[in-house]
């Protein structure tokens, strides 16, 4: 494999994730609509929204400064950088054959996502007004509680794999497929709890609302418009699919270890199937549960934390 190939693959997977992100949101919305006996918008609706936003002009809050303009750009960039780190179509069979200039591992991925969240919150405060502040405050609170659990889940896998590199983990797991042990079960449950929180869905956040009492993420986007809003919305779609891909890389890693075109196509099909399963899971949960009261969240995330902790304990003790 040449020096450039791993980079080309990483960038190709990144582009794929960014392009497919809105589609996943569209599919989830469609599934939810069908579950609620509505027709719903087409699955391509998010793309239409995005192109509309891109064409529009910007209305900016008159108190906002240079941060407000810089934030959407940086948020989208950091989320895309995170998308380059998760294996989708291809996982190297061993760590040794990875790129000579590795782009990063799971910790960097979570770091990029955290940077995106940090900057979004900064942008929300720049406009002034209570909605942005409330959204930022709540989002940072939830993130604070989610992040350690997410790390713990990643670590529960990486203490046996001996690496936090997602490609290497997926490759390692793909080689010994079928040995889905007891710790994996617990960690997967923890991850599903976190998936709901990290993608901003019921019961943690309600993506469909603009009611000030219920919104977390949307509250921060309230003052953005036009291309800035385009960046933030696309970043949110991308983040959702990245977290889904992270679940798959850690727990359902049937990812081909070859770069032959046929293997890549197979990988794409498998990825689509697994993502669809996760999308159905999200749609089902969103349709059948109510949003939790904000201060009930620690308890909900506590399930995730304890499961992840037990997974690590089962591995190490």
């Amino acid at each position: 494999m040449g020096r450039a190939t791993p980079w080309a693959l990483a960038l190709g997977q990144m582009a794929l994730l960014v392009l497919l992100g809105p589609l996943v949101t569209g599919v989830i919305q469609k599934l939810k609509a069908r579950l609620q006996c509505r027709r719903g918008a087409g699955i391509l609706q998010p793309y239409r929204d995005l192109t509309k936003l891109l064409r529009k002009g910007t209305v900016q809050a008159d108190t906002a400064g240079s941060f407000f303009r810089a934030v959407p750009v940086l948020v989208l960039a950091s989320t895309c950088a995170a998308a380059a780190l998760v294996p989708v179509l291809f996982a190297p069979p061993a760590a040794g054959s990875a790129s000579p200039l590795p782009l990063g591992d799971a910790i960097l991925l979570l770091g990029w996502l955290a940077l995106g969240r940090f900057l979004t919150a900064v942008g929300a405060l720049d406009a002034g007004g209570a909605f942005g502040g409330m959204g930022a405050s709540r989002e940072m609170t939830v993130a604070t509680l989610v992040e350690p659990v997410l790390m713990l889940v990643v670590f529960s896998v990486s203490v046996v794999a001996g690496t936090t590199d997602l490609g290497a983990i997926a490759g390692h797991l793909s080689l010994r497929r079928g040995s889905f042990g007891a710790p994996d079960i617990l960690a997967l449950f923890a991850m599903l709890v976190l998936l709901l929180a990290e993608t901003g869905r019921i019961p943690v956040d309600n993506p469909d609302t603009h009611l000030e009492l219920t919104m977390l993420h949307e509250g921060m986007l309230l003052e953005h418009s036009g291309p800035g809003l385009f960046c933030l919305v696309l970043a949110h779609h991308t983040k959702q699919i990245v977290v889904m891909a992270l679940v798959q890389a850690l727990f359902l890693p049937w990812i081909p270890a070859s770069t032959a075109p046929f293997a890549l196509a197979l990988g794409l099909g498998a990825f689509a199937a697994r993502t669809l399963v996760l999308a159905i899971f999200l749609a089902l949960v969103e349709s059948s549960y109510a949003k939790l009261r904000f201060f009930r969240l620690p308890q909900f995330l506590g399930i995730g934390f304890l499961s992840a902790f037990l997974a690590v304990a089962l591995r190490l003790l």
Binding site: F180, G181, A182, P183, I185, L186, I303, S307, L310, L314
Partner: peptide, 12 residues
């Protein structure tokens, strides 16, 4: 072992 993990999860 797997059932044990599930049992622990139901306990949680």
């Amino acid at each position: 072992d797997a059932l044990g993990a599930l049992l622990l999860f139901t306990m949680i």
